[in-house]
Simulated assay, not measured.
Amino acid sequence: MSKANMTGTYHMVSQENMDSYLSALDVNFALRKVVCMLKPTKQIQHDPSTGHMNIKTITTFKNFDMDFYLGKEFTEDLQAVDGRKCQTTVDWQGDKLVCEQKGEKKGRGWTHWLDGNHLHLELRAEGVTAKQVFKKAD
């Protein structure tokens, strides 16, 4: 089964439970309120031949750039999110792109998958799950 090429630009159309997820990461109240109002854009570059991916999350407040190779652990600096560093591995599980972030927070990570022209993102930490849905730009 070939894996989906996620390359493209995606604009957020919905999110749920983001405040609870950010609270599980110990993000302060004021910053949580700001983040919950943002409508991020995801720009994904994916080279299936090399396994290299770059995921940029762009907002009017802060941008976040994640650059990695599938299946290879790396140190991820999450200063822009919650001030932590963690050991991160991203790889395919079936048709879903799954990220495991080992560090101070238990069960931290995320899952991306495509459903037609919609990119789904499930964020997890400390037993709390948030969901975002993005629509691919034309």
Rank of each mutant, 00 (worst) to 15 (best):
L97P: 07
L123T: 04
C36H: 10
A80E: 02
S23N: 04
I58P: 02
T89N: 12
K136M: 03
K3E: 09
N5H: 00
D19M: 12
G83Y: 02
Y10S: 03
D19Q: 09
F134A: 01
N54D: 06
K72T: 13
R124G: 00
A130K: 07
T88L: 07
L97Y: 02
V27W: 02
P48A: 05
A137N: 11
V90M: 05
S2A: 06
I44T: 06
Y10W: 13
K85C: 02
T59L: 02
G83S: 15
H11F: 09
T88F: 01
A4F: 04
K105N: 09
P40Y: 08
G94W: 06
Q93N: 09
M53K: 07
F134T: 00
W110G: 10
K105L: 12
Y10A: 03
L78T: 08
A24Q: 11
K72A: 12
K72N: 05
Q43G: 00
L121N: 05
K105A: 05
V133Q: 08
E76R: 14
P48N: 07
G103K: 06
N54R: 15
L31A: 13
M37Y: 12
K106V: 13
L123R: 01
D138S: 10
L121A: 04
P40M: 11
V35P: 01
V81F: 14
G51W: 04
S2Q: 14
C36Y: 10
D26M: 03
K105M: 02
T129Q: 13
A125L: 08
T88V: 01
E16G: 09
T88E: 01
K96H: 11
T60A: 14
Q101N: 08
K42H: 11
Q93I: 08
T129P: 11
G103P: 07
M18A: 08
M66D: 06
D138A: 15
G83H: 06
K135L: 04
M18E: 08
T111H: 09
